[in-house]
Amino acid sequence: MGEFIMSNRRTFLKQSVIGGGALSLGLFPSELFASGELVKLTIMHTNDMHCHIDPFPADHAEFPGKGGLIRIATMVNQARKENPNLLLLDAGDMFQGTPYFNYFKGDLILKVMSKMGYDAGTVGNHEFDNGLNDILSAFKYANFPIVSSNYDFSDTILADHIVPFHILKKGKIKIGIYGLGIELDGLVGKLNYGNTQYLDPVKMAQKIEFLLKKEHSCDLVICLSHLGYSFEQNKISDMTLAPQTRYTDLIIGGHTHSFLKKPSVLKNADGKPILVNQAGWAALAMGKIEFIFDQTGKLNEPVAILDNL
């Protein structure tokens, strides 16, 4: 009987969508949102901002007048007006790159990100550029959690300041966020990372994603990764991580400064879709991803993924 209702309902919803010829645009009738049958989460994300708070100078050779976190702040404000269920995330390398960092370390970028309402960030390799003490002093200005699942900071001064994962709710949507960092040896000076232990990102991802989806019943699981989009060498990256996961819905990447035209869609270990995205660097780009959830439990798969915003 339940199945009967379900399939009828599904048919009805499909017809109501197709009826308007709107499916190709991925648009839904607003009454489905109003009635609470569908809920929308908007994710906006940055990576490798490298303290580019202001746009590049107007006479810059490569990016004249482009980029700037200060512009992204306005874009986020606008998007938040359209959908208050907005998640703002960063995938690391907030530090290093403009005189703001040389003069004020990580303090200013974290003050700005906090004011913008970032929900979470992670630890990139450049966060270590001035050592652990300067990470600690800057992170005091962050009013959002910094997550890292595969850097073990327990034997460092950062032990109480970085969390292995973070769970939050936007409206009715429960979101679990974890973070992965790149191998430090050979990339960051030993003096700068001290007793930070690098743990296998794949094992930690599998462990934490299970915890978030199955034990904490998160509706969506997001990985903030500073592993890099992909490498020619046989080195772990977002593209090689994604097929080894089961419960991660989205990997927001960084490190390789990749300007993706649109998110890559891969299959996870269960053959289900997982998105990998990255938004260049220096606040020159930002990713925007809307997840539309079916609250009725009747409409689910297959999931449509459209580059249509």
Binding site: L220, F293, I305
Partner: peptide, 13 residues
């Protein structure tokens, strides 16, 4: 909740 649809856009600043 289950995901029903995903809409994306990478925006140049």
């Amino acid at each position: 909740l289950s995901v029903h649809q995903i809409n994306t856009k990478n925006i140049s600043v």
